[in-house]
Design a protein around this nucleic acid. Sequence first.
RNA 1: CGGGGAGUGGCGCAGUCCGGUAGCGCAUUCGCUUUGGGAGCGAAGGGUCGCAGGUUCAAAUCCUGUCUCCCCGACCA
Length: 489
Amino acid sequence: MAKKITNRNEDYSQWYHDVIREAKLADQAPVRGCMVIRPNGQALWENMQDALDDMFKETGHENAYFPLFIPKSFLAKEAQHVEGFAKECAVITHSRLKSSGDGVEVDPESRLEEELIVRPTSETIIWDSYRNWIQSYRDLPILINQWANVVRWELRTRMFLRTMEFLWQEGHTAHATKQEAIEETEQMLEVYRTFAEEYMAMPVITGVKTASERFAGAVETYCIESLMQDNKALQAGTSHFLGQNFAKAFDVKFQSAEGEHEYVWATSWGVSTRLIGGLIMTHSDDNGLVLPPKLARYQVVIVPIWRDDEQKANVLDYCDNITKELEDSGIKYKLDDRESLNPGRKFAEHEAAGIPLRIAVGPRDLENHNVELARRDTLEKNIVDRDGLGDRIKTLLDQIQDDLYTAAQERIQENTHHAESYDEFKEIIKNKGGFVYAHWDGTAETEEKIKEETKATVRCIPLEGEKEKGKCMVTGKPSTQKVLFAKAY
RNA sequence: CGGGGAGUGGCGCAGUCCGGUAGCGCAUUCGCUUUGGGAGCGAAGGGUCGCAGGUUCAAAUCCUGUCUCCCCGACCA
């Protein structure tokens, strides 16, 4: 059997790229750090979008759209924000080309009076609008989300995990009180957790970022962190309490019921196509992509098998009957009746694409009133009765969704450690990797020292779990709880 | 942005050291035979050798520049 996917334990990075290629999720674009998202990848993203968008709407948000281009002066209005993003902005300086010889060149006469930034995030341009939208406490809260692309001029890129242009959603809300904004931040973090766990079957730890990892311009950054198969952590989503930083920068005040003028409280929160990278590295195996049924473009693929025209007609007839039942059961399916490819080839292709269930139907099955049902996650094959197939598959898809989550959770638990001393910590990070809980004194200096010496960073200060007091593993200073460390993407 | 590796048909590669006008496997197209785990035989199509300069009678091959990808580092919500 021709192996087109590198084994994970051989070269994890190569495996990751192989999976993306074989599942036809994306191609490398001609532009550095950018990718072409192919139909399989886009369908996956759209399914993620649909689920998330419903959750946003259920929590009272509405969608809007703000411009791709941000006046350079806007970005400068919030000091920390500009400092955080200045080094990775694409800047538009000219508006025209002119022909030169065989090709074209930038027309020097078209230089822009005010240069434009391609949005790395949209806080500034959105808060500029909010200033006009908000006068009174009656205008609040504003609960807006936008689905968009953003550009960050990254030096080192990786398909889905860090690309120069990526797709995401960014929620931007404005509130009358600090308390309400904090509640919003926490609520959206829970939305992300729910999405990651229930749809992606990707267990996450929720927590708060340290000052050094905080979003540029935020007062507090909350995050969901997960652990990938290679024992590196992935930040999968963030939700920021922005305080009044942007309200002050953009002079957004409202008049309270008492007639006072007060600055508005803000949040922002986002997840991106990086989630697809997380999905790949949570479930996939050496045969390719493994998708959770809730996000799969096709939940079931039917592969008919025949030897001659008569069998072909009968088998396809039998398949027709099955597809009707799947249709009625609300199952997303695909019938792969391509001629000229033999079944083995089709099996391999659909495995690489991560389709959760495969039904194979051949003459034998017609005779015995069966089908062969194969699970992508466990690679188990079973001959099952044709009757009640729709219900059986629905149950099985739910089972797969649960099993994927459980398997990922067990993997993460097995790779989560507690370090009581710095030596132990270093040993774990060096030899095992994974999540490591340890006491830290809360200072940036210690954090930096640990990062330099071990490459591990504080992923978050977990919101849940026991909050046992202790002493910093490095300095011995008091610590109120263990924090989560890992090497990260 | 620093160090290392690499760009040759859609994909994976050989050819580069030692210059002589491009080849293999897979894929594609057509035909026939096949089809329960990546089919077989026959025929056909497809490449300005990443791009731009230079050296030379002659460049995939030598020189210079540049772009892109991969790995490591720095950087990075």
